[in-house]
Amino acid sequence: MSKFVISNTIRKLRFYNNEMTQQELAKKTGVSRQTIVAIENSKYSPSLELAFRISEVFKIKLEDVFSYEIIEDNDKK
């Protein structure tokens, strides 16, 4: 069975945007700071709407913020 790994560049984007805090990004996107922390640490995948709001804050394409990778399970039973 394959797994999907979603990664993001939010931390880097915050750094290059005047070192924006997690709280500032949370306020601009209408979520809690804890949600931003969870997304940055790949503990939570944002809704499509939230993903677009995050990309809009940074004024870049969605795929420049988020990416996913399919990991094939080579374990044959």
Results as ranks from 00 to 15, higher is better:
2 S>N: 15
3 K>G: 10
3 K>Y: 13
4 F>D: 03
4 F>K: 04
5 V>R: 10
5 V>Q: 12
5 V>A: 12
6 I>W: 01
6 I>P: 00
6 I>V: 14
6 I>D: 00
7 S>V: 09
8 N>M: 07
8 N>P: 09
9 T>P: 00
10 I>N: 00
10 I>D: 00
10 I>R: 00
11 R>V: 14
12 K>Y: 11
12 K>G: 04
13 L>D: 01
13 L>M: 05
14 R>N: 09
14 R>F: 03
14 R>P: 03
17 N>M: 08
17 N>V: 04
17 N>Q: 09
18 N>G: 12
19 E>P: 03
19 E>M: 13
19 E>C: 14
20 M>N: 03
21 T>P: 02
21 T>G: 09
22 Q>D: 07
22 Q>P: 02
22 Q>Y: 04
22 Q>W: 05
22 Q>F: 05
23 Q>N: 12
23 Q>R: 07
23 Q>I: 10
24 E>A: 14
24 E>G: 08
24 E>M: 12
25 L>K: 00
25 L>D: 00
26 A>E: 11
26 A>G: 15
27 K>A: 08
27 K>V: 07
28 K>L: 14
29 T>I: 06
29 T>P: 01
30 G>D: 10
30 G>S: 10
30 G>V: 08
31 V>Q: 03
31 V>H: 01
31 V>T: 13
31 V>K: 01
31 V>L: 09
32 S>K: 04
32 S>V: 02
33 R>I: 06
35 T>S: 12
35 T>C: 12
35 T>P: 01
37 V>F: 08
37 V>D: 04
38 A>N: 14
38 A>S: 15
38 A>F: 05
38 A>H: 07
39 I>T: 04
39 I>K: 00
41 N>R: 14
42 S>R: 03
43 K>A: 13
43 K>P: 02
43 K>F: 08
43 K>M: 13
44 Y>S: 07
44 Y>N: 09
44 Y>F: 11
45 S>E: 06
45 S>T: 07
46 P>E: 07
46 P>A: 11
46 P>V: 05
47 S>I: 13
47 S>H: 15
48 L>G: 12
49 E>A: 09
49 E>P: 02
49 E>M: 10
50 L>K: 02
51 A>W: 04
52 F>S: 06
53 R>M: 03
53 R>L: 04
53 R>T: 01
54 I>D: 00
55 S>K: 02
55 S>F: 05
55 S>H: 05
56 E>H: 12
56 E>P: 04
56 E>I: 05
57 V>R: 01
57 V>C: 09
58 F>K: 02
58 F>W: 04
58 F>G: 03
58 F>H: 04
59 K>T: 10
59 K>M: 10
60 I>L: 15
60 I>A: 15
60 I>Q: 15
61 K>L: 08
61 K>D: 14
64 D>W: 01
64 D>T: 03
65 V>K: 00
65 V>A: 01
65 V>W: 00
66 F>L: 08
66 F>Q: 02
66 F>P: 00
67 S>Y: 08
67 S>T: 11
68 Y>S: 06
69 E>M: 05
69 E>S: 08
70 I>Y: 10
70 I>H: 08
70 I>P: 02
73 D>M: 07
73 D>S: 13
73 D>Q: 11
73 D>T: 11
74 N>M: 06
74 N>I: 09
76 K>C: 11
76 K>V: 14
76 K>G: 12
76 K>L: 13
77 K>L: 09
77 K>G: 07
77 K>S: 10
77 K>T: 09
